[in-house]
Design a protein around this nucleic acid. Sequence first.
DNA 1: TTTTTAATTTAGATGCGTCTAAACCAGTGC
DNA 2: GCACTGGTTTAGACGCATCTAAATTAAAAA
Lengths: 232, 232
Amino acid sequence: MLSAKMEDYLKTIYELQGRSDDPVSTSSVAERLGVTAPTATSMIETLAERGLVEREKYKGARLTREGETVAIEVVRHHRLLETYLAEQLGYDWTEVHDEADRLEHHISEEFERRVDEKLGEPEVDPHGDPIPNDRLEPVDESSGETLSEHAEGDEVVVERVRDRDAEELAYLSEAGVTPGTRLVVEEVAPIDMITVCLPDGEPVSLPGEIAEAIRVSSAEAGGSGEPSEVEG
Amino acid sequence: MLSAKMEDYLKTIYELQGRSDDPVSTSSVAERLGVTAPTATSMIETLAERGLVEREKYKGARLTREGETVAIEVVRHHRLLETYLAEQLGYDWTEVHDEADRLEHHISEEFERRVDEKLGEPEVDPHGDPIPNDRLEPVDESSGETLSEHAEGDEVVVERVRDRDAEELAYLSEAGVTPGTRLVVEEVAPIDMITVCLPDGEPVSLPGEIAEAIRVSSAEAGGSGEPSEVEG
DNA sequence: TTTTTAATTTAGATGCGTCTAAACCAGTGC
DNA sequence: GCACTGGTTTAGACGCATCTAAATTAAAAA
Ligand SMILES: [Mn+2]
Ligand SMILES: [Mn+2]
Ligand SMILES: [Mn+2]
Ligand SMILES: [Mn+2]
């Protein structure tokens, strides 16, 4: 069996890996988890011994197929829990992350199954993140583009908003930038700042770092700003 | 902060303590938790240093007021979770214990509050165990009598059934002995065995050890075997 | 009262996850 | 091509929760 800590390391490597093929650096893992570099080195070595990551000294780590499956399982737990907390227990979507981040390691497969069933096998969580299916097949974690890649005049629909920072999320939620919202890019300032227009005409300015955390799809002309349905 | 393990020790001492004033023995704690006696000794000492138990060497341990409050909080979590799993997620009442036993240590106060609210502030869990209120006031863990204390001819209503052993619970459930069931004691055999009659006339024989795990109240004549309401 | 026995505690060790301090690469700049 | 520098790993340590083996104590038996 794997400890909750091991699961957290695997999930972190999974998140940092993205669709890139480069190994993930020790320091980035350490920073993300709030531990020192030696701690990360030692845990990554343990995971390598267990065949969950491939590691090359001084280069970094990459998930093996098996490690990826574990990570996807944890991510599935996380996103199902977030969805459940929001839909069934009335949590605000800006508040579900921390609770899910703990519980994800402690629920049984039975619990996962029943929650999935009760929710009607949802495909995305409250932040727009895709929920891996029960066969734990890889999901596309970087569909669409980030808001920061867009130019003035572009019309887009918010697909996903990074859920890691509750403050950030609360701010965006308050400003009206939530999954499904239609935005028009009004200004891309040279000082790493982007201003977008909400459906009601209200402008919102966002620093580049935040704009990178918002994933969008291009809006077809005439779109209304309704939540976009996942097809299939 | 207290670890999940510490919480388990406190809960165990709480359960073993009952309404008795005697200290709980090291070995009983060790046995209940599936650890060796030295392990229990050392953990109990740690808890004593933290002011959560009173301990006298070679005598045993007793919860302090503070330790009791922690234990009651864990018990509240446990029973709320059991109720939630049964009522909202469709678990059978014989299957909720293990899941609750893990999750009880990892839910937030917010989660507890929302679950309590969603369930309408229930007073008993699926096994008939009382759920401590949110002020964590002590509850009567040994109301009524055990079935084993009763004599031939007595008419009783099942109030609580011990939830620790899933097999035992499944057997009783199958046999029809569940909280709210009206029973008539048919025979008290000298070989530590009791036979009771269900409302439908079906007889069920139970070894003394099991009969001690079933708490009952005396049925007023004419009672129908409906679940007895908690008053107030 | 003395001896025996059973429970309890002490002693010493292990694995996990973490730390700080020190040694060590690997790529960059001169 | 060689020294610098920043990220990485090694070394050594600690606290927690656990174990086995040995010593101790309290209670029961003789
Ligand atoms: Mn986590
Ligand atoms: Mn999410
Ligand atoms: Mn527990
Ligand atoms: Mn119960």
